[in-house]
Design a protein around this nucleic acid. Structure first.
Length: 113
DNA sequence: CGTGTGACTAGGA
DNA sequence: ATCCTAGCCACAC
């Protein structure tokens, strides 16, 4: 149980750094890892993150700001509720003003800091 | 070791 | 604007 899966741990590390009221995309994380085209793996890694409560998977959506992963949450629309609870406006399973305000880019935020 | 799958993305029609 | 196709890489069987 350790860093057998570097990819996973890297993904978790980034997701954990996402501040409340913000969200990022799978591609952004994948890009930060140097594998923009393998964004699928990010989602796959999130699938394994079910056991890790430290990973706010609800803050990760697709590049369109749509809660594509809500399907994988235990409740029905738990993902949306969690986002709204943090102040993120969600409508029709999509984050409002995602790319304009809510979007949190690890490539920039973690690099410039 | 080969095949299939996936919480995606970018590009073309 | 929408719909379809290809690429990508890790993991399960």
């Amino acid at each position: 149980m350790s860093q057998q899966n570097d990819f996973y741990e890297k993904v978790y590390g980034i997701v954990k750094k996402i501040p409340e009221g913000r969200a990022t995309s799978y591609g952004a994380i994948a890009k930060y890892l140097g594998a923009a085209r393998s964004s699928r793996m990010v989602g796959y890694a999130m699938n394994a993150a079910h056991d890790i409560i430290d990973v706010p998977a609800h803050r990760v959506v697709n590049r369109n700001g749509v809660l594509t992963g809500k399907h994988h949450f235990p409740g029905k629309n738990l993902m949306q509720q969690l986002l709204e609870s943090e102040g993120v406006e969600v409508e029709d399973d999509q984050i409002k003003e995602f790319k304009t305000k809510v979007f949190w880019d690890p490539m920039i935020e973690l690099n410039l800091d």
